[in-house]
């Protein structure tokens, strides 16, 4: 479909649903907080629907949805959790799509510490390296894959400090408690500018793609606001915001 036709199709969809303003309860992965805070008001203005947003880690959302949480849409930090919810019959498979692809960065709040080849990992002149929990966070397992591919995982393991999620990994590095950390590009790149410090954009061949999927949950079936939100996440306006926050599409 041509972009312009897609857009008009979307406008028609949005126009048709805005006649019946509804409310939709959305669970949003913590790493997508920044863009979502921009997308939400724009969505509400454009469609007349209301969003009720909860930010958190995806593992927690999974446990909550399995136990009857009233979420209608999951904007996940991975593609595993939405798939798992589909298998459990708690999400609508045909609605799932990748709204963003996460990019992994090695970052330090100290200028000059991280070189643009990531050699700092081999030099190892630091005490602590922050990562997101590899067991639960896609960015965490991506970071581990990078270290494994560079052959430094074993030497660095004793120096890893693990954040509950990528937000906490960033917080450890940003407060200087860890000299450097594997963070999401979206955390250090805002409105086309990198935050201060030093960074290495990890080559994408070094880690499995971090696909962030959104899906409508069973409780959101037949909620026009849930459909409208999915459509809006695919719109040019939303994609522009998502890109500006350092995600690929």
């Amino acid at each position: 479909m041509q972009p312009s036709r897609l857009f008009s199709a979307l406008s028609i969809l949005m126009f048709s649903v805005s006649a019946h303003a509804a409310e939709v309860s959305v669970a949003v992965a913590a790493n997508f907080t920044g863009p979502m805070e921009k997308i939400a008001p724009a969505f509400e203005t454009a469609t007349g629907h209301k969003l009720k947003i909860a930010y958190g880690t995806v593992g927690k959302f999974y446990a909550q949805v399995k136990n009857g949480a009233p979420f209608e849409v999951l904007v996940s930090a991975d593609d595993e959790t939405p798939k798992r919810l589909e298998k459990d019959g708690l999400a609508l498979p045909e609605t799932r799509f990748t709204y963003a692809i996460g990019k992994l960065m090695l970052w330090s709040a100290t200028p000059g510490l991280v070189d643009d080849q990531g050699q700092v990992l081999k030099r190892g002149d630091f005490k602590r390296l922050a990562v997101a929990n590899p067991k639960t966070a896609a960015y965490g397992s991506a970071a581990v894959a990078v270290m494994k591919n560079l052959g430094v995982l074993e030497t660095l393991t004793p120096r890893l400090v693990t954040g509950e999620n990528i937000t906490q990994a960033y917080q450890f590095a940003a407060t200087g408690n860890a000299e450097l950390g594997f963070v999401a590009l979206s955390q250090i790149y805002k409105d086309g500018k990198y935050s201060t410090g030093s960074y290495w954009a990890v080559p994408i061949e070094l880690y499995p793609q971090i696909r962030q999927d959104a899906v409508i949950l069973a409780k959101g079936k037949d909620n026009p606001a849930a459909d409208a939100l999915m459509a809006y996440l695919k719109s040019d306006a939303a994609r522009k915001v998502i890109r500006a926050h350092g995600y690929e599409l």
Binding site: G59, A63, R84, N133, K135, T136, E164
Partner: peptide, 8 residues
């Protein structure tokens, strides 16, 4: 425990 829950 929190880790176990998060890791499903």
């Amino acid at each position: 425990i929190y880790d176990h829950v998060e890791a499903l």
